[in-house]
Amino acid sequence: MPPAPALSIQGLSHSFGPQGVLDDVTFSLPVGRVGCLIGPSGCGKSTLLSMIGGLSEPTHGTIAHAFRHPVFVFQDPCLLPWRDARDNVAFGLKAQGVGRNERRCRAARLMEVVGLAPDDVGKYPHELSGGMRQRVALARALAIEPDLLLLDEPFSALDLGLRRQMQALVRRLIDQRNLTAVLVTHDLAEAVRLADCVFVLSGKPARLTARHDIARPFAERDDGFVHSEVNRLLSDPATARALAVEDMGHGGGQ
């Protein structure tokens, strides 16, 4: 039997005033899986992600899950410029009432987990590269021990080599911690590389036009597989139509 859904979205529609954004979106995602929302810019992917994380409510429909600690990672790391890297990582722990020594120790350990050097602990955001700032943001997200990771194009501002490193790091941490994750991207190759389920949105208001399952384990998704899988997905007419307005699948994921 398939695993029970961790995330269930039923008949979800949403409008901003008279402008429809999402229309009758329905899908589910099992525990411990990575789902990807993909579609043209402005089609409502980030709006849907914010609803999954509880930041806003849909006009119609339901979102059901039992996650207690959802956390967002955005394209902009959103670090506090007056705090050093360790204190940025520990920020959420302070809000949870964790003592100073404990939160600093946990933050230092997590910085090591995401590949930051001991010398980086005391640096301020302006002293860190873009990739290092994104690693701090990831460590900050992991510090509160989330059970749902919500990723809103967190790699799109990084150069190609660093993007690939961060993609591999995030997916490895998701698998190690058995997290459920939802990724927003406009890059079909990135979706194929990282996700177990790809949900294609299109139209205004956006509907779910296709769902694709990626069966191969993440560790076995080399460049050849990603290229052939992108072509397979684009051979589906509904997916090709939905993504035809942008150059999908030839960007940062390759």
Rank of each mutant, 00 (worst) to 15 (best):
P3I: 11
A4I: 04
A4D: 14
L7S: 06
Q10N: 13
G11I: 06
G11N: 15
H14N: 09
S15Q: 13
P18E: 10
Q19L: 14
Q19P: 02
V25I: 15
V25T: 06
T26L: 00
F27I: 09
P30V: 03
G32T: 11
C36I: 08
L37P: 02
I38S: 06
G39W: 03
P40I: 02
G42W: 03
S50Q: 14
I52Y: 08
S56E: 15
S56R: 15
T59E: 03
G61A: 06
I63M: 12
I63W: 12
A64D: 15
H65M: 03
H65S: 14
A66S: 13
F67Q: 08
P70R: 04
V71W: 01
F74I: 12
F74H: 09
P77V: 02
C78A: 15
L79A: 07
P81H: 08
G92M: 03
L93R: 00
Q96M: 12
G97S: 07
G97C: 06
V98W: 00
G99R: 11
G99V: 01
R100A: 12
R100M: 04
N101C: 06
E102P: 00
R103I: 05
R104D: 09
A108L: 06
R109A: 15
L110R: 01
A117R: 15
D119Q: 15
V121H: 12
G122L: 08
K123V: 04
Y124P: 00
P125K: 03
H126D: 13
E127R: 14
L128A: 05
R133Q: 14
R133F: 03
Q134H: 11
R135P: 08
A137S: 13
I144W: 02
D147M: 00
L149T: 07
L149F: 05
L150F: 01
P154T: 00
P154Y: 00
A157R: 07
L158S: 03
L158V: 02
L160T: 13
A168F: 05
V170Y: 12
R171G: 01
L173M: 10
L173R: 09
D175W: 02
Q176F: 02
Q176V: 08
L179E: 03
V182Q: 10
T185H: 12
T185I: 01
H186P: 02
D187P: 04
A189F: 08
E190S: 06
R193C: 12
R193M: 13
L194A: 09
V198W: 06
V200L: 02
V200M: 04
L201W: 02
L201D: 00
S202Y: 00
A206P: 03
D213Q: 09
D213R: 10
I214F: 04
I214N: 11
F218K: 10
F218L: 05
F218E: 07
A219P: 04
E220G: 05
D223N: 13
F225Q: 04
F225D: 04
F225P: 01
H227M: 13
N231W: 13
N231E: 15
L233I: 09
D236I: 03
D236Q: 10
P237M: 10
A240S: 14
R241G: 01
A242G: 11
A244D: 13
D247W: 04
G249Q: 06
